[in-house]
Nucleic acid binder design. Sequence first.
RNA 1: CGGGGAGUAGCGCAGUCUGGUAGCGCACCCGGCUGGGGGCCGGGCGGUCGCAGGUUCAAAUCCUGUCUCCCCGACCA
Length: 560
Amino acid sequence: MTRLSTYFLPTEREPPAEAEALSHKLMVRAGLIRQVGAGFWTWLPAGWRVHERVVQIVREEMNAIGGQEMLMPVLQPAELWRRSGRYGIEELFKLKDRRGADLVLAMTHEEVVTTHVAAAVKSYRDLPLILYHFQVKERDEPRPRAGVLRTREFIMKDSYTFDRDAEALDVSYQKHVLAYDRMMDRCGLEWYRVEADVGMMGGTGAHEYMAPCPAGENEVAIAAGYAANLEVASAEAQPVAPQPPLAAPEVVPTPGMTTIDAVASALSVPDGALLKAYPIILDGDEMRLVVLRGDHRVNEIKLQNALGMPFRPAHADEVAVRLGPPGYIGPVGAQMPILLDAGVAPGGYVTGANQADAHLRGVEPGRDFSFERVDVRTVMTGDTVNGSVIRIEPAIEVGNIFKLGTRYSEPLGARYLDETGKEQLIWMGCYGFGPARAAAAAVEQSADEQGISWPRAVAPFDVEIVVVGKEGSEERAFADGLYGELQELGLDVLYDDRDAGPGEKFTDAELLGCPLRVTVGRRTLGAGEVEVQLRRGKLATSVLLEDAAEEIAELWRGLP
RNA sequence: CGGGGAGUAGCGCAGUCUGGUAGCGCACCCGGCUGGGGGCCGGGCGGUCGCAGGUUCAAAUCCUGUCUCCCCGACCA
């Protein structure tokens, strides 16, 4: 029953005052979603249709690679999470039942699915497996934001693969690459598959599926043939003008100049002619000096990955005691290992002199200090990969695929016997996909001044019929009939049969953004036609009354 | 967690400084006109001013506490 006169589609003329992101504003205005609390959202009927269309696409692609759909509970015993070592995670909602037993609201389902597999799988003959489900996930996010883009409760497709070894895991992973590529395409999104950080939980490889748009929370570095999350991106730095070489470093007075900017402008050299020293403390209280070009920034994720262990920036007093006055430190004479960033080309640089109010000029890496090469800087716009220039765009992470390895099979005891009767750990992968984010990304990428303009595959309805004419009129009668005919042709039709003005109906139709709008009014009816407008580009055409439904369906099939 | 902002009718807001009958636009309801881009006329409904305590003859307004929401940052296995 999708006559607008009886359908729950509360549209708003104005966006909520607190809304910032385009998708947030439009999805609320169009009557797709409503907020319940910080990070809690209701999907209204039309919004839920969008969500379910995305879900169906994901389901079909998962089934196509041999995925088996199931369902696991959100509420789980804390014990499982203690066993996997994830009970301490801040974002995990924890609660107690009436008997005082500790429970959690699951944020993903590795623990449960691995437990089942551990119990049931005995032999290499039982592998591989691809298990998945759509389920509510709960995360106590520090800061929910932007409508359904970042919420504390959301539905996610999670799949888990179980394989005999790393090579077999690669195969399962590759299947997911294929499935995910198709899901993103079918949702009508512009997207990139980017290299991603594997995070603290380890793992042996990860990609994220990113949909570029202004409201995105992630940044991706993109060049021809290259795409990576900025967190892990790597590229060639833009060169800086070489400085005249000196036989040995030379002290230059720089009173009060403790910033790159101040020193560079005092010496009339570009920022990139300086070397920046970033002192860090490792676990065992060891100090290291990370050295990179003055115009570059340390990427802490890359640095941590390069170190293979956590670190923290050194405090000012530690620097003063072990190296030199903060603001004037440098690699020359430093009594600690030096990590030199890959962005530093051979040549002479200006560095801190490890004494107050002085810098050194003509410092050459290798000649004046020894070092270990690392790649720990944040890539910038204009850097290059294989000669092509990097650009950086904000993007929404719609999905991610991740090789877990034995991270969960080990603590949860998921093992099997191989052909030789030897016990082996199962190799796992996990793969998430957020339908809500896919929907929001589609809105972000396709909206215009009038509202949403859905890709055909995820629109709440295929066609919206707008009838202009009062109850009992010839226009109404024709529109009523057309409504039925289009439905019989298999289209999802929204029929605006409200007793409202044409302006209001057109405005609402454009806000909701169904791919086709059919207008039935006296003007065209008299001419023996009805008007069909494509939401994208607002192109209007007319079709003859006799076979209007068939022609409209034909138009719809040809849409992107 | 740090910084900033906001809670008054369904939505968007004014009123708070300077205490004195709670307002505006849109939406909604009734009647009529209109019928291809939020049209017009007339008449209506709707609010414990986030919550609790305090000051006062009197509190949306002043004081104290508390809850909630938003934005920026941190964070986001």
